[in-house]
């Protein structure tokens, strides 16, 4: 596919040699519920370097959002608890940080933007008020200085007439504009890490492209590390430097974006790629076939099977898969996957 060669041509935008800015090790986020322990994130490790876009992919309920909320420690405890793990950021473990220390990190060093810009902005506070809040809190600026900085931020995210917008309220802005405001808000304290949880899912396609372009521009300008959580593989191909595929709270595959699209090693990753509808001008019957889907649903996280969590839905599953969870191993250089059968999978074509 031409798309794939385009991916290969893209040089690494990240500082390949730089130390990771955020390093998550063996994170286990469990929820104690009446039905038992929900292992929403179960032994996840990953890291991001400055200026890198790491894409976390998976179906709904695979633990993507819980991962990001764990990093921000925005989960109510209880029911949530961290059964193990470290979240290393600037030399300290965020899981050991006090609530007050976390408040200094949130919105300042690590920021987050959310899926639905319609509901993520407070409807009764002006844009200026919401933007300056974090600036005044973290940077100790006066109201007036903060307003100036807020206007600059709106300018950075290409919102025309920023001064006027500052006085407006969210309901006076379109969805795309609101997401720009969210991005401006998240970037206002120049964070090292930006977590974007499905930032374009709720937007029109044309607006999606604009927001994605904006995020790339920001990354290039500010060298922010971006964790992009999405279920949209189109977005992944467009944006990511590296891709992490999650299934039922665990990492099942991780590789550079070109590598993973060229040689997916896990049947689940392949399934995800096959279930993306493609634009085509070929309307022959062969192309009109039904979009392939992954049979079944994500297993209940309270009662995970003993073996591979994907085995039940996998066409290649063997007895070993059903008995023993596969280790996460390098299948190719710099390409991790957790699958016993990856060597036996058929050659990959879409």
């Amino acid at each position: 596919m031409t798309e794939d060669t385009a991916l290969l041509d893209r040089g690494p935008s990240a500082d390949a040699g730089a130390d990771p800015v955020l390093q998550v090790e063996d994170l286990r986020t469990y929820f104690d519920t009446r039905d038992g322990v929900v292992k929403a994130v179960d032994g996840l490790s990953f890291s991001v370097r400055p200026g890198e876009i790491l894409s976390v992919v998976g179906e709904s309920g695979c633990g993507k959002s819980i991962t990001s909320l764990s990093v921000m420690q925005l989960l109510p405890r209880p029911p949530a608890r961290f059964a193990s793990g470290r979240i290393m950021f600037k030399g300290s473990d965020l899981l050991q940080a006090s609530e007050e220390e976390m408040r200094r990190v949130r919105g300042n060093e690590i920021s987050m933007i959310f899926q639905d810009p319609m509901s993520s902005l407070n409807p009764v506070l002006s844009i200026g008020d919401q933007l300056t809040e974090a600036i005044m809190l973290h940077q100790g600026l006066s109201q007036k200085q903060a307003m100036d900085h807020a206007a600059e931020m709106l300018d950075l995210v290409h919102i025309p007439e920023p001064r006027r917008r500052l006085k407006e309220y969210p309901h006076q802005l379109s969805g795309g504009m609101r997401q720009r405001v969210m991005i401006a808000m998240a970037l206002s304290c120049n964070p090292s890490v930006l977590i974007a949880d499905e930032p374009t899912t709720a937007l029109d396609v044309t607006i999606q492209a604009q927001i994605l372009a904006l995020m790339e521009e920001i990354r290039d300008k500010l060298k922010t590390a971006i964790i992009l959580i999405t279920h949209d593989l189109g977005v992944v191909a467009e944006m990511a430097d590296r891709v992490l595929v999650m299934y039922a709270g665990r990492k099942v595959e991780e590789a550079d974006v070109a590598e993973i699209f060229e040689r997916p090693q896990h049947p689940y990753t392949r399934g995800l790629m096959r279930s993306v509808p493609r634009l085509t001008t070929d309307f022959s019957e062969a192309r009109q076939e039904r979009l392939s889907e992954i049979p079944g649903i994500v297993p209940a996280l309270t009662n995970l099977p003993k073996g591979c969590t994907f085995a039940e839905r996998c066409a290649f599953a063997t007895d070993r898969c059903r008995a023993e969870y596969p280790a996460l191993e390098p299948k190719k250089p710099d390409h991790l996957a957790a699958c016993w059968e990856s060597a036996n999978l058929p050659d990959w074509t879409l």
Partner: peptide, 25 residues
């Protein structure tokens, strides 16, 4: 509501989230 989560994600203290962001709504 999502905007309460946004307020916490900014690093605001609980009291400010409760009074300024939640109560006003």
């Amino acid at each position: 509501e999502d905007y309460v989560r946004t307020a916490y994600a900014k690093g605001l203290a609980t009291r400010k989230v409760l009074v300024k962001h939640a109560l006003k709504n």
